[in-house]
């Protein structure tokens, strides 16, 4: 028996985790075409920074999260300058370099901080409905996911950086000829993507166990969302998170967690096969075709 409200909450949970984890990767992949296989570890860095800020520095939770975002953004800038910059245009090479980086980061954190961290408490309380109850933080997380998407949309449409970034995606050569400093755009983009990954880690720290190897699951989730989403960053991540979150919630509710994970991955493969450019690639093509056939 499927309880509607339960399903809604579980869906929100799935959706928010997927969107938060993926949006950073979507920006980096969408704008720079770089596959960052260390993305999961950036999320891990954000989570660890939050715990560090909360337990070691004694900061309140929000300040710890802000610290985490800053730390991860700075870290991203360093990585971009030292490593990523040298692999532009070489997609597979960027994959291998970031794969190496992910090994260094996850193992390095293990050496640095040991096998697991003290936990960060979950803020807010519970909300009860009938025989059931949920953590209010879950709802907050979903709101945060939507806010992030809105924020990214604003970033790309209303700021200088956003305009330059979109120009660079569309046609790098022309953008450069028109005076856009594309190197700067790339650095800033990578920093923003990293910051968003750090934010995801920070927001997740209160509800999951923070371990050096936590990055792996989030990497797969992020990739799945980005690939299914397609070229449009905001719309793609949002739609894809929505679609995959729904699939996950329904299947998990009826068949259990393992089935949910497997079906999610299978759906990804099917989408890749039938919609090469993801959901928004498909909608773009449909829209183009309609425009041509219309007026």
């Amino acid at each position: 028996m499927v309880n509607g409200l339960n399903l809604a909450f579980q869906y929100l949970q799935g959706f928010s985790v997927l969107v938060l984890a993926a949006v950073g990767l979507a920006i980096i992949f969408g704008i720079m075409g770089v596959i960052n296989l260390a993305h999961g570890e950036f999320i891990m860095v954000g989570a660890y920074a939050t715990v560090f800020g909360y337990h070691d520095l004694g900061l309140p939770l929000v300040a710890s999260m802000a610290l985490a975002v800053g730390v991860t953004a700075a870290f991203g800038m360093v990585v971009e300058r030292l490593l990523i910059k040298r692999t532009y245009g070489r997609l597979f090479d960027s994959m291998v370099v970031t794969l190496g980086l992910s090994l260094v980061l996850s193992q390095g954190m293990l050496v640095l901080r040991g096998t697991s961290e003290p936990s960060v408490p979950t803020p807010f309380g519970t909300i009860s409905y009938g025989a059931f109850s949920q953590s209010v933080y879950r709802v907050a997380l979903a709101l945060a996911a939507v806010a992030v998407l809105v924020g990214v949309y604003w970033l790309f449409t209303r700021t200088e950086y956003g305009i330059r970034a979109r120009a660079t995606i569309q046609d790098e050569g022309t953008a450069r000829a028109l005076g856009v400093r594309t190197e700067r755009v790339y650095s800033t983009t990578f920093a923003i993507g990293s910051a968003l990954a750090g934010l995801a880690g920070a927001l997740l720290a209160p509800i999951v166990s923070v371990t050096p190897t936590m990055g792996g699951t989030y990497l797969v989730k992020s990739f799945v969302v980005v690939v299914v989403g397609g070229p449009s960053v905001v719309l793609g991540t949002g739609l894809s998170g929505g679609l995959l979150g729904a699939v996950d919630a329904v299947v998990t509710n009826v068949y259990g967690q393992t089935a949910g994970s497997i079906v999610l991955l299978v759906v990804t493969v099917v989408v890749i096969r039938f919609f090469q450019d993801g959901v928004t690639g498909f909608t773009d093509r449909v829209r183009d075709r309609l425009a041509r056939e219309g007026t």
Binding site: L83, T87, L99, G100, S102, Q107, V111
Partner: peptide, 20 residues
Amino acid sequence: PEFAKIGVGVLMIASILLLP
């Protein structure tokens, strides 16, 4: 034991950057 995996990661990065 703790540094073996780090070594592999560094090896990967170095090899791509220095000997692509």
